[in-house]
């Protein structure tokens, strides 16, 4: 049986943990609202761009001259897995789930005899992936210096990926991130980003659209932009998911801490009572002996 002093110490320590988790929960709730608004505000651009790229791609017949970003390199040997994680912890299994999805895909590809490389975004994915694939990390992008990843970061990441692609370092790239469903549900998602999968959009009207310059030139310019937009979208989704996951995880932690405090307090009171009773018995026994 722990002594009274020890019990009191534990109660106090659990109480201060609860304070931290409660604060983190409230911060996450506030940030979540902002992140959700940002994700929503980014939607019109992504939708329009997908529409344009879709209708352009449907006009261009794949040929030797069509952009490599659309047609691919003609090989499927080297796969790059771009894994987007958060920089901070205290968000439950959020990062673990994304890493798990990436490792699953990596194992699958390796079993097929493909070469797997990684490109890591965010701090929390680095350690677990480096542990399993120390040689396969092609590059990483650090987002710890910025408060919230924005379009500038998406641009920088896309730039590095495009440079690697042009240098022939990989043939196919997949992007891993946490898709935001609700504050309770975040889904680790895999999405092919290179070669660019053609967005399937129904062409709205049969009107003859003029292109200036011609379709292929526009397409060649829009594809990197489309890639940037997709990365940007993923970063925003990730941010919202992280806050959602954090909120749920911290809510659970706060509740657990509360229960633990209750249990410990009961135990503390019981031992205090027992000590008092023992003392009384001793005094009474002493008095009777006289």
């Amino acid at each position: 049986m722990a002594s009274l002093k020890e019990l009191k110490g534990r109660i106090n320590s659990v109480k201060s943990t609860q304070k931290i988790t409660k604060a983190k929960q409230m911060v996450a709730a506030a940030k979540l609202r902002k992140a959700q608004a940002a994700a929503e505000a980014a939607r019109p651009y992504a939708q329009r761009l997908a529409q344009v790229v879709g209708s352009l791609a449907s006009r261009v017949t794949p040929s030797a001259s069509s952009p490599k970003l659309l047609a691919g390199t003609g090989k499927t040997q080297v796969h790059l897995l771009v894994v987007a994680n958060s920089d901070r912890g205290l968000c439950g299994a959020f990062n673990a789930n994304i890493v798990k999805a990436a490792k699953l895909k990596a194992a699958e590809l390796t079993a097929d005899g493909k070469t797997v490389l990684f490109y890591l975004v965010g701090r929390k994915g680095r350690a677990p992936i480096r542990r399993d694939y120390p040689q396969a990390i092609l590059g990483q992008f650090d987002t710890t210096q910025v408060r919230e990843p924005g379009f500038a970061e998406a641009e920088a990441i896309a730039g590095e990926l495009l440079a690697l692609f042009d240098a022939g370092r990989f043939d196919i790239a997949h992007l891993f991130y946490g898709k935001f469903k609700s504050a309770l549900v975040q889904e680790p998602t895999v999405q092919q980003i290179v070669p660019v999968p053609t967005p399937t959009v129904a062409i709205s009207d049969g009107a003859v659209v003029e292109y200036e310059p011609d379709e292929e030139t526009i397409l060649a310019e829009l594809l990197p932009r489309y890639l940037r937009t997709q990365l940007f979208g993923a970063l925003l989704e990730n941010l919202a998911s992280e806050q959602g996951a954090s909120m749920t995880a911290m809510d659970n932690a706060t509740r657990n801490a509360g229960e633990l405090i209750k249990k410990l307090t009961i135990q503390y009171n019981r031992s205090r009572q027992a000590a008092i009773t023992t003392e009384l018995i001793e005094i009474i026994a002493g008095a009777e002996a006289l």
Partner: peptide
């Protein structure tokens, strides 16, 4: 990219960088 252009209401469908 290939020159400035003005767009008024009723312009023909057109796409440009």
């Amino acid at each position: 990219t290939e020159g400035e252009f003005g767009v008024l209401e009723g312009h023909a469908p057109f796409t440009s960088t």
